[in-house]
Amino acid sequence: MDSLIPFTTSGSLVDCVDRKMLVILRDGRKLQGVLRSYDQFANLVLEDTVERIYHKNAFADFPRGLFLIRGENVVLLGEIDLDKEDEVPLRQVDYPTLEPYHRAEIEAKKERDEVKAQILFDEQGYSKEGGEGDGY
C-alpha cells in the first residue's frame, strides 16, 4: 500500500493527520498540537496548539489555540511518540516563571549571531544575509 502513494508532500503527511505533532518554525518557536490538515506547500492546520518554551531542564506551555501556519515558515514537523513523551526527563513549570529566562536566551543568541555575522562580514568577506533571512 505504501508504494502506491506517490512521492508528494501529501503522500508523506497523510498518516500524520489527527496525531499530536511538534512544529518548529523558522523564528525558532516550537508548537505542539493536533495536525488537522495540510497541503503541498506544507501549509498546516494545528488544533489545540500550545507554544512550548525550554530553559535548561524545564519547559512551559502557553495555550495558543487553532493555527493555520503558512508553509514557508515551517522548518520541521515531528510526530510525538506518546510513550516517549512520558519519559522525557524535564519538569514542567509555569509559563510566567520560565518566560524571562527564555527571552534572555533568545536575546543572547541574537547578540551572538550578530557578532558572528559582523566578523564574517568584516574579516572573512561574506555578504550579509537578506532581510527575509534564515535567522531562526
Binding site: 508523506s12 511538534l22 518548529i24 506544507a42 522548518v75 515531528g78 511518540d81 524535564l90
Partner: peptide, 12 residues
C-alpha cells in the same frame, strides 16, 4: 530538548 519525544519527522 524539544526533539526528545520525536521519532519520525517531516523536514521542509
Amino acid at each position: 530538548p524539544h526533539m526528545m519525544a520525536v521519532k519520525n519527522c517531516f523536514i521542509r
